[in-house]
Design a protein around this nucleic acid. Structure first.
Length: 110
DNA sequence: CGTCTGACGATGC
DNA sequence: GGCATCGCCAGAC
C-alpha cells in the first residue's frame, strides 16, 4: 500500500519517536505534511493499533491525553518518566528538553 | 454528497 | 491559569 493515508503516516511517525522523547500532535501533523491537522493525529491516536507508542504523543502545552486512554490518567506520565522523559513540577512534560527533534537515533522498537 | 465530530492549536478574556 | 471560540482536516454516518 503505497498510500496508507494520513493515519498510516501518523502511525509510522509515532512509531519513530525514540524512547525518552515525546512529540506533540501538531508536530506529527507537520511531519505528515498537514501543519493544521493536529486533530487528525489525535483521532489517529484514538484509533491507534496495539503496539503503537501513542503515549509518547502529547499536547503542545505538555499535557497529555484525557481520562482512561492509557488505563489511568497518571499512568501515562509514569510510563514516560520511566522512559526518561523529563516532567515539570506542574505535571506537564518539559518540552524544552524532551521534545523529539524529528531525528531517528536508532530502531524505534525498544 | 452534506453534516457532524474530534486524544488539537492558537488566541482572547 | 482556566474557560470559550474559531479554524483546521480527514473520517464516520
Amino acid at each position: 500500500m503505497p498510500d496508507p493515508g494520513l493515519y498510516g503516516r501518523i502511525y509510522t511517525l509515532c512509531a519513530a519517536i525514540p524512547r525518552g522523547k515525546v512529540a506533540t500532535y501538531g508536530q506529527l501533523a507537520l511531519l505528515c505534511g498537514h501543519p493544521r491537522a493536529a486533530r487528525l493525529v489525535g483521532q489517529a491516536m484514538r484509533h491507534a493499533p496495539a503496539g503503537l507508542p501513542c503515549h509518547r504523543v502529547i499536547r503542545a502545552d505538555g499535557s497529555m491525553a484525557p481520562g482512561d486512554a492509557f488505563g489511568g490518567q497518571g499512568l501515562q506520565q509514569k510510563m514516560l518518566e520511566d522512559e526518561g522523559v523529563v516532567f515539570l513540577a506542574n505535571g506537564h512534560v518539559d518540552l524544552a528538553i524532551s521534545r523529539w527533534d524529528g531525528k531517528i537515533y536508532s530502531v524505534p522498537a525498544d
